[in-house]
Design a protein around this nucleic acid. Structure first.
Length: 829
RNA sequence: GCCGAAGUGGCGGAAUUGGCAGACGCACUUGACUCAAAAUCAAGCGGGUUUACGCUCGUGCCGGUUCGAGUCCGGCCUUCGGCACCA
C-alpha cells in the first residue's frame, strides 16, 4: 500500500539495504548481451565526499542505470586511489599509521557512497594501497623494465621541498607543486623514469581516433606533447677540434646565423673553459643562471643575458665564423641545448643581438618588399615570405626554401630532418612512504636486479620514520632495506623509493574487469569482453596527467600482448566544477555545502536530481539552496500525482483502444510519447540530463492538467503514462521510483531491471498545428490549420488574414515561403 | 604570442537541421483554500509604449549572406581554460 506522503529517508534506507543484500548490481560476463563499461574516476579517500564527487557519480549512475534498462550488460565499478601524501601527512601530524588512516577514510566514504544509492558492483571494489593490487602495479613496473621502458637515469629533476620528493613534469603547474603549491626547485638526481617519449608520436596521432573526447582535452594533450618538425645540424668548432649540434624549426633562416647560443648546462662549456682566460667568468655566469628557479628562468619577460666564450664555430651553409655565447634563455632539455642565433628571424635573438651589439642579416622578407635593417624594429617572424642573402636559395618562397635547405644538409651530411617533442619522460620515483615500493634490488656484484615475480609484492614495512628528511622513509627500516640478491644470494639493499600514485591509477580500470585474479593483473579474455571503457566521466583537471599516463600505459600493455585495443577510454565526459556564489566551494570562502547535510535534509534522490537538473554536465554548476528546494518540490509533485491516480493504476489496464481517444486523451498521449522520445535521446546522445528532467516535468504538468480537463479518466492511458514516467525517472531518482514501482504498480521486480519505455511514432502526430504568419520575416499572426495542409492552402489562408493584409498594405507580394507545419512568410515590397 | 571554449531575462538555463527567442526550474506578483500562516492548486512574469487589439526594441559589439540569423560568414570586444624564452 502506497503511503500518502513522500518520506525519502525511510524509503532510501530500505532500498539501499535491499539492493545490497540482493546484490542487485552485480554483473558477470554475458556474451548474449551487448556490453557497456561506464566508469567514473575513482576518488582519493580523503575522508569525506564533496559535491564534485556527488556530481561525478550521479552522472555515471544515470548512464549506468539507463543503459541497463536499455538492455546492455553494464559494468559500473568503484574503488579507491588510496596511496598518496595525505595519509603520510596524517601519520606525521597525528601519529596514525597511513594504512589505518586510509582504511578508516575508505570505510566512511563507502558509507557515504552507499547513501547516494549508486548502482555499483561492490564485489569489484579495488584499493590501490592493498597488497593484492599493488603486487600487480609492481608486476607492471617489471614488465616496463624488461621492455626497456623503465630506466634509471641522472638528470635535473623537479624537487618539492615541502613534499620532500621529486615530481613529474606534469605535476609542476606554473613552476609550482600540483599538490602543495610551493615553488619547485631543480636537483640533479638519479631517478626512475618511464619512457613515455617513446610513445609520443602515437599518443599524439591516436588523439584523432578519440571522437568521443572533448576537443579541449585533446588540444591540451596535443599542446603538452608539443610535436615540431625541423632540422638538426652541426656547426664545427675548429678551435676545440669539436662540433656543436643545433635544432631549428626554421632552417630557411640558416644563412642569417650571426651567433651560437648555448644553454648554461651544455656539456661543451666544460671543454670551452679549459685553458680559457674567461673560464671563471663563464662558470660564474652558468652558476648564476642554474640557481634561478624555473619560474624566473622560463619567464618570457626576463632579460636575455649571455656571455661570449671567446670560442667560435662555423655555419655549414655559409662557411662563416660566428661567436659562441652562453645564454640564460636557451633550455638545455629541449632539442640539443644549443640554438643558432638569427636576430632577424626570432625576436629573442633580436633582443639579444641588440643588447650585445651582434650583427644582423636579413634572410627572409615579405614578397616584393626589400627589408632594410636600419628601418626594422623587430624580427620578421611572419609565416610567409621569400629568401634573400641566402646564396643559391635567394628569391625562393620560404616553405620551399625550408625543404631545399634541409635537402642540402642531408645531401652534404651535416644535418638531418628531425622531429622534436616537448613531452619529457615520466619521472615515477617518489621519496615517500605511502606508495608501491619499486621492486628493484641493488647488489654490489650483480648491480640492478628485479625482485623475482614469485616474490611480489614487495611489502611496505611498518617500522619506518615518516619524517626522515631528505631520505626516503623506507630507508629507515633496516628489515626492509637489507636483503639478499636474487641472482647471487649475496647481501644487497632494496630500492627505497616508491612509485608515483599516478602509476597505480593508470591501470585500475583494467583490474575492475577481473578484480580477484591472483595469477595475473587480469585475464585477457575477460578484459577483452569488457574493455575498453565505453564512457569515462571525471574532472578536467586530469586532462593531461591521469588521462595521458593511462593512454601511454595501455599502449605498452597492448605491445606486450595483454590487450587488443589501443585506447583505454572510448568516450570521455569532463564534468564542470560545482561552485557557489560565483566561486569554487572552499573552506576559506565558507561556501562549502556538504553532501551529508543535503542528504539529511532532503535525501539522496533530491540531491541527485538537483545536481543533474541545474546545469548540463560539462558546464559549471551553480549551487542554489532554493534550487534544491525546487527539486524536492518536484519529487513531491510526482508522488502526489501517482497517489492521485492510484485507483486507475491499480486497475492495471495495460491495453486500450488508441482509435477511440478524445482530445484530452490524445493530448496526454502525444506529450507522453514526445517525452519518451526526448528523454531517451537527451540521455543517449547528448548527456543533457537537465533537459531530460525538464521534459519529465512537462509530462508531470500534463498529468495534472489531464486530471483537471478530462471528463472521463482513461485508465489504460493513465497506466501507460505513469508507468513510463516512473521508469524514465528511475535512473535519476532510484529510491523513490523503486518504492512507487513496488507499492503503486505492485511490481515484483526492481524498476531498475525493467525495460526502458519505447515511443510510438504514430502518437506524435497531431491533427491540427499552429502556424506562424509572417510578413517580411516579422510575425503578424498565428493560425491553427490541419496538420496536412499543403503549401498552396497555407498561402491562401495566410493571404486572407486581416492583420497580414494590413501589413502588406499597398505593397506587391513578391514571393510566399511556406514551411508546412511551421510558418508562412509573405515577402512584399 | 599560439591553441581551445563561452558570452541569451532578476538567476540557473532552453531553442538538437537557419524557421514563433526565453522551454523547464528558481525568485517575484496575484488569486483560491485557511481564523491565520505554511503547504498545495491556479494565473501572470524580457524592456518600452498602449485602456485594449497591437506596435516596437531585444541573444557581447560592428558589418554581411538570406524571404527569415541566438544559430551561417567576415571583423572586433570581454571572460574562462591550456601551452609558452620549446629555437
Amino acid at each position: 500500500m502506497l503511503e500518502e506522503k513522500y518520506a525519502p529517508h525511510a524509503i532510501e534506507e530500505k532500498w539501499q539495504k535491499y539492493w545490497e543484500e540482493n546484490k542487485s548490481y552485480k554483473v558477470e560476463m554475458d556474451e548474449n548481451k551487448p556490453k557497456s563499461y561506464v566508469l567514473e574516476m575513482f576518488p582519493y579517500p580523503s575522508g569525506n565526499l564533496h559535491m564534485g564527487h556527488v556530481r561525478n557519480y550521479s552522472i555515471g549512475d544515470v548512464l549506468s542505470r539507463f543503459r541497463t534498462m536499455k538492455g546492455f550488460n553494464v559494468l559500473h565499478p568503484m574503488g579507491w586511489d588510496s596511496f598518496g601524501m595525505p595519509a603520510e601527512n596524517a601519520a606525521i601530524k597525528h601519529g596514525v599509521a597511513p594504512k589505518n588512516w586510509t582504511l578508516e577514510n575508505i570505510a566512511n566514504m563507502t558509507r557515504q557512497l552507499k547513501a547516494l544509492g549508486l548502482a555499483y558492483d561492490w564485489d569489484r571494489e579495488v584499493a590501490t594501497c592493498k597488497e593484492d593490487y599493488y603486487k600487480w602495479t609492481q608486476w607492471f613496473f617489471e614488465l616496463f623494465y624488461k621492455k626497456g621502458l623503465a630506466v634509471k637515469k641522472k638528470s635535473a629533476v623537479n624537487w618539492c621541498n615541502k613534499c620532500n620528493t621529486v615530481l613529474a613534469n606534469e605535476q609542476v603547474i606554473d613552476g609550482k607543486c600540483w599538490r602543495c603549491d610551493s615553488v619547485v626547485e631543480k636537483k640533479d638526481l638519479e631517478q626512475w623514469f618511464f619512457k613515455i617519449t617513446d610513445y609520443a608520436d602515437e599518443l599524439l596521432k591516436d588523439l584523432d581516433l578519440l571522437e568521443g573526447w572533448p576537443e579541449r582535452v585533446k588540444t591540451m594533450q596535443r599542446n603538452w606533447i608539443g610535436r615540431s618538425e625541423g632540422l638538426e645540424m652541426t656547426f664545427a668548432i675548429p678551435e676545440l677540434n669539436d662540433e656543436v649540434a643545433v635544432y631549428t624549426t626554421r632552417p630557411d633562416t640558416s644563412y642569417g646565423v650571426t651567433f651560437m647560443a648555448l644553454a648554461a648546462e651544455h656539456p661543451l662549456i666544460e671543454k670551452i673553459c679549459e685553458n680559457n682566460p674567461k673560464a671563471a667568468e663563464i662558470k660564474a655566469f652558468c652558476d648564476r643562471v642554474r640557481n634561478q628557479s624555473d619560474i624566473e628562468r622560463t619567464s618570457s619577460e626576463s632579460e636575455k643575458e649571455g656571455i661570449f666564450t671567446g670560442v667560435h664555430c662555423i655555419n655549414p651553409y655559409t662557411g662563416k665564423t660566428v661567436e659562441i655565447w652562453v645564454t640564460n634563455y636557451v633550455l638545455y632539455d629541449y632539442g640539443t641545448g644549443a640554438v643558432m642565433g638569427v636576430p632577424t628571424g626570432d625576436q629573442r635573438d633580436w633582443m639579444f643581438a641588440d643588447k650585445y651589439g651582434i650583427d644582423k642579416i636579413v634572410v627572409v622578407q615579405p614578397k616584393g618588399v626589400n627589408l632594410k635593417l636600419e628601418e626594422m624594429t623587430c624580427a620578421y617572424e611572419e609565416k610567409e615570405g621569400e629568401l634573400v642573402n641566402s646564396g643559391e636559395f635567394d628569391g625562393m618562397e620560404m616553405h620551399e626554401a625550408m625543404a631545399a635547405i634541409m635537402d642540402k644538409a642531408e645531401a652534404e651530411g651535416f644535418g638531418k630532418r628531425r622531429v622534436n617533442y616537448r613531452l619529457r619522460d615520466w619521472l615515477i620515483s617518489r621519496q615517500r612512504y605511502w606508495g608501491a615500493p619499486i621492486p628493484v634490488i641493488y647488489c654490489p656484484t650483480c648491480g640492478e636486479v628485479l625482485v623475482p615475480e614469485e616474490e611480489l609484492p614487495v611489502r611496505l614495512p611498518e617500522d619506518v620514520k615518516f619524517d626522515a628528511g631528505a631520505k626516503s622513509p623506507l630507508a629507515t627500516s633496516e628489515a626492509f632495506l637489507n636483503c639478499t640478491c636474487p641472482k647471487c644470494g649475496g647481501p644487497a639493499t632494496r630500492e627505497t623509493d616508491t612509485m608515483d600514485t599516478f602509476l597505480c591509477s593508470s591501470w585500475y580500470y583494467l583490474r575492475y574487469t577481473d578484480p580477484k585474479n591472483d595469477k595475473l593483473p587480469f585475464a585477457k579474455e575477460i578484459n577483452g569482453y569488457w574493455g575498453p571503457v565505453d564512457q569515462y566521466i571525471g574532472g578536467i583537471e586530469h586532462a593531461i596527467l591521469h588521462l595521458l599516463y593511462s593512454r601511454f600505459f595501455l599502449k605498452v600493455l597492448r605491445d606486450a600482448g595483454l590487450v587488443d585495443y589501443a585506447e583505454p577510454f572510448s568516450n570521455l565526459l569532463t564534468q564542470g566544477m560545482v561552485i557557489k556564489d560565483g566561486a569554487k566551494m572552499s573552506k576559506s570562502l565558507g561556501n562549502v555545502v556538504s553532501p551529508e547535510e543535503i542528504l539529511e535534509k532532503y535525501g539522496a534522490d533530491t540531491a541527485r536530481l538537483f545536481i543533474l537538473f541545474a546545469a548540463p554536465p560539462e558546464r559549471e554548476l551553480d549551487w542554489s539552496d532554493q534550487g534544491v528546494e525546487g527539486s524536492f518540490r518536484f519529487l513531491n509533485r510526482v508522488w502526489r500525482i501517482i497517489y492521485t491516480y492510484l485507483p486507475q493504476i491499480e486497475q492495471k489496464v495495460t491495453e486500450y483502444d488508441v482509435t477511440a481517444l478524445n482530445e484530452a486523451d490524445k493530448e496526454l498521449r502525444r506529450i507522453l510519447h514526445n517525452t519518451i522520445k526526448k528523454v531517451t535521446s537527451d540521455i543517449e546522445t547528448r548527456f543533457n540530463f537537465n533537459t531530460a528532467i525538464s521534459s519529465l516535468m512537462e509530462l508531470v504538468n500534463a498529468l495534472y492538467a489531464y486530471k483537471e480537463n478530462a471528463q472521463e479518466i482513461n485508465a489504460g492511458l493513465v497506466y501507460e503514462a505513469t508507468s513510463a514516467l516512473v521508469r524514465m525517472l528511475a535512473p535519476f531518482v532510484p529510491h523513490m521510483t523503486e518504492e512507487l514501482w513496488k507499492d503503486a504498480f505492485g511490481a515484483a521486480a526492481s524498476v531498475h531491471a525493467e525495460q526502458w519505455p519505447e515511443y510510438d511514432e504514430a502518437a506524435l502526430k497531431v491533427d491540427n498545428v499552429e502556424i506562424v504568419l509572417q510578413v517580411n520575416g516579422k510575425v503578424r499572426g498565428r493560425l491553427v490549420v490541419p496538420a496536412e495542409a499543403t503549401a498552396a492552402e497555407l498561402e491562401k489562408i495566410a493571404l486572407a488574414d486581416a492583420n497580414v493584409q494590413s501589413h502588406i498594405g499597398g505593397a506587391t507580394v513578391r514571393k510566399v515561403i511556406c514551411v508546412p507545419g511551421r510558418l508562412v512568410n509573405i515577402v512584399a515590397k
